[in-house]
């Protein structure tokens, strides 16, 4: 009992509230006609689908610049990678891996530039990141109209100029991970490949933070002056963290797109940031500390919440309340993280 109380003290209050709310929803679901197995498989799928994007928050939080509110910057790199792969007409696993490869290359480049910029605005990374994200998305919206992509699947059917808002991936790499080693138990579907990929990404990041470079990032985030006195170059550590975050964002959006079956351009990258930030915070991270467990727990809770809330709540209330709920939960969570005083354990 004591240990349980001890554990309760360690868990964040909002995490607990959301968790309890989730359980309440499941109880509610049992009384409605919603099929729980299909809800569960839906939720599992969404965890894998969003997980890598949430993972992208880890490096910047750990290096001390807060959650990466400039996530769209990296996402753009991922989109470009996917577009190039489509333009080359590659399908299946080839298409997917080529997209990932290009995404990583492009994100490395973008990440270096973005990291250079953030270095110049130390202390304002979250704010500048947010607006850099917005600006880049608006700028790329122009680019989507102008870039010389020629594949007829990608450009507007009529008029023929500029890329479409959403590109169907059916002929390319839609569900490629989801269907890899997929199995079914009754109504419950398990997207093995997707989860393997997510687990692999988590493991790699986890491992990275045990290398000297990764440790340097940690040291800078926890105590910059300690890091300096340990011979670490904090500017370099921050740059590496930002680049890594960008690469993860780029890879993350491709994983997301293959699971969703569509590539979304124009404004869509903007809507990825806040849920990702909120997820890791719900998982118990703060704007200064985060680990892989926070990513997994947070994504699981947040995505399950969203999946289950839609069918269950729509039977109780009218209309789609989930969108509103998502706004309130995710922003409320971020607000909480920004305003809470750091725990000074003594």
């Amino acid at each position: 009992m004591d240990r349980f109380l001890e554990w309760l003290k360690r868990v964040d209050i909002p995490t607990l509230i959301i968790f309890l709310f989730l359980i309440a929803l499941f109880v509610l679901a049992a009384f409605t006609k919603v099929s729980i197995p299909s809800l569960l498989s839906d939720s599992i799928r969404r965890i894998g689908m969003n997980g890598v994007l949430v993972l992208a928050m880890v490096p910047t939080i750990r290096v001390g610049t807060g959650p990466n509110f400039g996530l769209p910057v990296g996402i753009i790199g991922g989109l470009l990678g996917a577009l190039i792969s489509m333009q080359l007409g590659l399908a299946g696993f080839t298409g997917f891996w080529v997209a990932i490869l290009f995404a990583i290359l492009i994100c490395l480049g973008i990440g270096l530039g973005y990291g250079w910029l953030l270095e110049r605005v130390r202390g304002q990374e979250m704010m500048v990141g947010t607006y850099m994200g917005y600006s880049v998305v608006a700028f790329m919206s122009i680019m989507w109209l102008m870039l010389p992509f020629k594949n007829p699947d990608m450009i507007w059917a009529i008029g023929g100029k500029g890329l479409r808002y959403t590109l169907a991936l059916d002929k390319y790499f839609a569900h490629i991970l989801n269907n890899f080693l997929k199995f079914k138990i009754g109504g419950f579907e398990f997207p093995t490949g997707l989860l393997l990929f997510f687990a692999g990404a988590c493991f790699l990041v986890h491992l990275f933070f045990r290398t000297r470079t990764g440790l340097a990032i940690d040291l800078v985030g926890q105590n910059e002056r300690y890091a300096i006195s340990s011979g670490v170059n904090p500017n370099k550590a921050r740059l590496i963290a930002v680049v890594l975050s960008n690469v993860l964002a780029g890879v993350g959006i491709i994983v997301y797109a293959q699971s969703y079956g569509f590539l979304q351009l124009y404004q869509a990258p903007l809507f990825m940031t806040f849920p990702a930030v909120a997820s890791i915070l719900i998982g118990g991270a703060s704007i200064k500390r985060a680990n892989i467990r926070n990513v997994i727990v947070g994504t699981a809770i947040f995505q399950t919440l969203l999946t289950i809330a839609l069918p269950v709540l729509s039977q109780v209330t009218r209309g789609d309340i989930t969108e509103v709920m998502r706004l309130i939960v995710s922003n409320g969570m971020i607000l909480y993280a920004l305003t809470r005083t750091p725990k000074e354990a003594r």
Binding site: R120, Y131, S135, V137, A138, S141, L145
Partner: peptide
């Protein structure tokens, strides 16, 4: 899109200058 870009970019620029 360009005017939207400008609105965001101006804010991003001002914030960057602030930082």
């Amino acid at each position: 899109f360009f005017r939207e870009f400008l609105a965001y970019a101006v804010i991003a620029f001002a914030l960057a200058m602030h930082g």
